[in-house]
Amino acid sequence: MERVSAGTKLTVLVLFAPFILWMLLLVILPHIDLLTISLRERVAPRVYEFSFKNYMEFFVEPLYWRTFARTAIMSILATVLTLIIGFPISYYIAKIARGRLKSSLFLLCMLPFWVSELVRTFGWMILLRESGIISGVLQWLGLADGPVEMLYNDAAIMVGLVYTSMLFMVVPLVSTLDSLDDGLIEAAYDLGGSTIAILREIVIPHAMPGIVSGCIVVFMLTLGNYLTPTLLGGKDSLWFTEQIYNQFITRFNWEQGSAFGFLLLLLSSAIIWTGLRLTRQRLQDTIK
């Protein structure tokens, strides 16, 4: 139904102004600036030239592209692990737990998200370090002779990444599995389907949108993570966000840092775009 439109145009303008200011000043222009700076080279103090040197540098210097590739591969691994570990839990919450148990388990899954990532990572440091809990338990059980250092390696990074990402996998999975009609599983069982067959032919196809959106979000967050790799991986964690930080803050080479930032943004966007394409979803539907 059409409403009285006196002043409607003005209202739209008034509401549009803060939106576009926010977008332009804090998102669009900064990213354009980032791109411009990544495409220039300092030839003399305060004199710059257009150049692809910063991007060339990335491909020429093995440390850079290896770190990039390592970050991507570790992120994929973390995503897959999160999915494998999280799926049975989501299934349990959505299909097996009932009533109170169901809602409290779900809430419990959300819990770590409410606590700062820093605190969570700190918890893992206390657990994994040489003088930590797990090392202590192992010695007490007689499984280890002396203190065991479990911090500062790739496995520790992986444990932390999977932990941090779990919520973003479990929530979409639970909601898609919840929407699967129990009758379908009962019918398949009644018709003689084995557990594996039911999972493969009914449950997983139905949960696919949840799996994809969970994976996209987890991959994106892992790729852009900084805290977990640096704290749990120590000096040699070789995470790409660390490279960006180093270029910006330690070396003060903003041109190189911007180029790295842009490469990370490209990879992240490409993954999201591919994921959405594969499942024919829209960004609007994936975010909440």
Binding site: V27, G257, I287
Partner: peptide, 22 residues
């Protein structure tokens, strides 16, 4: 609307450096 959603899919580190640079 798509633009409005963007900040959620840009890694935080990159949002940080882009604003720093700008």
């Amino acid at each position: 609307y798509m633009l409005m959603l963007m900040p959620l899919v840009i890694p935080g580190v990159i949002l940080g450096i882009s604003i720093l640079v700008f």
